[in-house]
């Protein structure tokens, strides 16, 4: 069981680091929204608040996500789903309008990162609850 627990913790370590990077990107996006709001009225209000809230939630999750804390996972799943949904809309628009996919960095930060985090959190949960594989020698009385 200890091996599984260790593996689950190792996967969570990776997820935490990815969440930290994602939180940092969201902080940058929030500050950009604040600056753009001086030029474009649409950046103020909901986009600024939602980006800021997502940044805080992801940064808190990067520090707090643990094997036994389901609330932190749920928060991450919700934020990642919102980000992925946004990317799907942008991807559809980009392909329909320009026949190009969005820029590589957008795919990295809004597709690879969220999907990796979700995958790692799910794997870590599975690794934790999976029964430990015991070798026949260890099982022998």
């Amino acid at each position: 069981m200890d091996t599984n627990r260790r593996h689950a913790d190792e996967l969570l370590d990776v997820a935490r680091v990815l969440l930290l990077l994602q939180g940092a990107v969201l902080v940058a996006t929030t500050i950009e929204a604040l600056i753009w709001s001086l030029v474009f009225p649409g950046a103020a209000g909901a986009p600024f608040l939602m980006s800021g809230a997502a940044a805080v939630l992801i940064l808190v999750a990067s520090a707090r996500v643990r094997a036994g804390r389901s609330w932190s996972r749920r928060i991450v799943y919700v934020v990642e789903t919102v980000i992925l949904t946004g990317l799907v809309i942008d991807l559809a628009l980009a392909v329909a309008i320009t026949s190009h996919v969005p820029p590589i960095v957008a795919l990295l930060t809004r597709f690879v990162l969220p999907l990796s985090v979700i995958g790692l959190l799910r794997q870590s949960t599975r690794a934790k609850v999976a029964p430990a594989r015991v070798s026949p020698l260890e099982a022998a009385p």
Binding site: A28, T29, E32, F40, P41, P102
Partner: peptide, 22 residues
């Protein structure tokens, strides 16, 4: 509905906005 800036160098528009590619 309103303009909200340009796509960040880090690849994201603010949440709640869409990236109009052209």
């Amino acid at each position: 509905p309103a303009l909200a800036g340009l796509l960040s160098p880090l690849g994201a528009c603010p949440i709640g906005t869409i990236d109009v590619p052209l």
